[in-house]
């Protein structure tokens, strides 16, 4: 079974130890997905697996067989125009060194879908009802799996708010 990466079928690696992250970076040269810790502690390697955000460092590539992977390289439009969130990151300076950025962006895109579904978070006041409003606290809790060391947190949250506002409009 092949793995579908950004709409292209790719064969799984021969070595089952190869992580999805290393498949992307070392085999497919899709280096937009970043290796920050390789142990599930930073979120830099976040990709979308069948639309859900996952950590590609803790996913063996073979676990993605028959599934659809979308990476940062697969977010821009067909003619290369940036995704609304990518634009918002530049506009709100939601980045400095840029290394956690692809993971933050992939994570936030999936987060928006989780919010749309009404999934609760640990800071949702009414767990049964789900999030009543998209507060900054909600965004911050939901994005806490993506570390940033340059300290672009405020800009990232503002960029996400910009995306949520634009897509709601």
């Amino acid at each position: 079974m092949s793995i579908r990466v950004n709409d292209t079928e790719v064969p799984p690696p021969d070595d089952a130890r190869v992580s999805l992250l290393d498949l992307l970076r070392e085999h497919l040269h899709l280096t937009g997905t970043k290796k920050g810790c390789d142990q599930g502690a930073c979120g830099a390697c976040t990709v979308l697996l069948d639309g859900n955000r996952v950590l590609s460092c803790l996913t063996l590539a073979v676990q993605a067989e028959g599934r659809e992977v979308r990476t940062i390289e697969g977010l821009a439009g067909a003619n290369g125009e940036l995704h609304v969130l990518q634009r918002a990151f530049v506009e709100r300076d939601g980045l400095q060194c840029g290394y956690c950025t692809p993971g933050q962006i992939c994570s936030a895109i999936a987060m928006a879908e989780e919010l749309r579904r009404g999934d609760p978070s640990y800071v949702t006041p009414d767990i049964a009802a789900g999030p009543a409003a998209v507060t900054r606290e909600e965004i911050r809790e939901r994005m806490s799996g993506n570390l940033c060391r340059c300290g672009a947190h405020n800009g990232i949250v503002e960029a996400i708010e910009l995306m949520l506002a634009e897509t709601a409009a």
Binding site: G32, I72, R87, V90, T101, P102, I105
Partner: peptide, 11 residues
Amino acid sequence: SRIDGPDKVRG
């Protein structure tokens, strides 16, 4: 805005 921003957000 930072001039390398577009490249960074694209990966």
